[in-house]
Simulated assay, not measured.
Amino acid sequence: MAIKVLVVDDSSFFRRRVSEIVTKDAELEVIGTASNGAEAVKLAQQLKPQVITMDIEMPVMDGISAVREIMAKCPTPILMFSSLTHDGAKATLDALEAGALDFLPKRFEDIATNKDEAIALLQQRIKALGRRRVFRPILPRSVPPKPATTTASTTPTREMAQRPATRPSAPVTRASGKRYKLLLIGTSTGGPVALQRILTKLPANYPHPILLIQHMPAAFTPAFATRLNGLCAIEVKEAQNGDQLRAGCAYLAPGGMQMMLERGGSFGRIKIVAGSMDMNYKPCVDITFASASKLSGGETLAVVLTGMGADGREGARMLKNVGATIWAQDEASCVVYGMPQAVTAAGISSQSIALDDMAEAIIRESGRG
C-alpha cells in the first residue's frame, strides 16, 4: 500500500512540483495539498496522511505553528522545506523542536548534483519517515545553568522530542570501569533533537571532549551549535581548524567540511579539511571516527544515533579494532533506524540503548554516574 502524503506550500508551483515528484514513485501517493498552515492542520485531521511535507513561511499560519498544532492534534511525520540561510536554519531548528522529523533545502539544486539524484533523495526521505510511528512531543526537564565563565550565547529555547515507542529490554545498569579520553557521537536524520536530548543532560564537569558529527548543511551548523550551547551545561561550539580539545566541551563538525583529529595539547587538536567532491556526507561520521581511531584508540566511547544509510559503520569498525567501545541507539527510539542498524547488524556495537537512557549511560560509563 502506498504511503499517503500531504503537500503543504503557499506556492502553487512548488506544490505541483513536489506532488509530481512524489507521485513518480509507485510507493507514494499525494492525497491532498494545502496552501497555508491552517489548511494543513485541518487536512491532516481529515485525511490522516502518513507524511506531510511542510513549507516554513506561509500566510494565515506559518509552518512552525502548523507543526505544533498537528503534533498536538494528530501526530504525523513531517518533512520541512527550508532555505539555506541563517534565518532558514533557525526556523528549521524551531520546526524540529516543535516535532518535525526531517528537513531538506527548498531549492532542489541544493539537495544534489543533478535532478534525478534530488528526486530520488526526496522520495527516499518521505518513504523513510512514512515507515515510522510518531508520538506526541514532550517538554524537556529543566536544564542547569551554564557556568558564568562561558562567553557564548545562552539564550534558551524549548526542547521538543519524540517519545520512544518502547523502553529497551536490557538498559545499561553498570559501568564497565574502562578509562576514556574522548566521546564521539555521529548522527543524521532525527539527530538534532536526539543530540539535544543527550547533551542537555550532561554535567558541566563532564570529563572528556566530545566530537559531534551531524549531517547538516554549512548554513545550519553555526546556528545549531549556538542553540545547543544555550541549552547545555557543557560548552558547545562549531569546530574550527586548530581547536585544542578541552574536557567538557562539545565540538560540532562544520557543514560542508570534514572534521579530523591530530596530535596536540592534552587531548588532541581538531583539523578541518574541505570535503572531497565524491563524498556523500560532509561532514562524514566515518572520517571522524577513523581519524579518532589513530589518535585516541581504545580510550574512546563512540555512539551512533538515528540516521539514514550506514555512515559510521566503517569508522566504528576501525575504532573497535583498536579497542574502543561502540554503542548504538535502539530501533524503537530512532526516527530512522539506518546508521545504528548498520553498526549493530555488523556486530560492531556492544549496546543498543534507548535515546532516553543514552545520556545516563554515557555519564555512568564516563565515571560521572
Rank of each mutant, 00 (worst) to 15 (best):
A2K: 13
V5C: 06
V8T: 01
F13A: 12
R16E: 14
I21F: 07
V22E: 04
L28G: 03
G32N: 02
T33W: 05
T33P: 00
S35L: 04
A40N: 06
V41Y: 00
K48E: 03
V51Q: 01
I56L: 14
I56A: 03
P59I: 01
M61G: 04
E69R: 01
M71I: 01
A72P: 08
I78P: 06
I78D: 00
L84D: 03
K90N: 12
K90T: 12
A91F: 13
L93I: 12
L96A: 07
L96Y: 05
A98I: 09
A98E: 07
D102G: 05
K106S: 05
R107Q: 12
I111T: 13
A112F: 06
K115W: 11
D116L: 11
K127W: 08
A128K: 08
L129E: 05
R132Y: 00
I138K: 12
P140F: 02
R141F: 13
P144A: 09
A148S: 13
T157S: 13
M160K: 11
M160G: 15
A161D: 11
Q162C: 09
A165E: 14
R167W: 09
S169N: 13
T173I: 15
R174L: 10
G177K: 12
L183H: 12
L184N: 06
G190E: 08
G190Y: 02
G191R: 07
V193G: 14
Q196N: 14
R197L: 14
T200D: 14
L202K: 02
H208W: 13
I210L: 11
I213R: 01
Q214N: 07
Q214C: 02
Q214E: 04
M216V: 05
P217N: 05
F220Y: 10
P222E: 06
A223D: 12
A223G: 02
R227F: 05
E235A: 09
A239T: 02
G242F: 11
L245Q: 08
L245I: 12
G255H: 03
E262A: 11
G264T: 11
G264M: 09
R269E: 14
M277D: 13
M279V: 03
K282T: 08
I287K: 06
A292Y: 04
L295I: 06
S296V: 09
G297M: 04
G298S: 08
A310T: 14
A310L: 10
D311P: 06
D311Y: 00
N321S: 14
A324C: 05
C334I: 02
Q341G: 01
V343G: 03
A345N: 13
G347T: 09
I348L: 11
S350T: 15
A354F: 08
L355W: 00
G367H: 02
G367N: 09
R368Y: 10
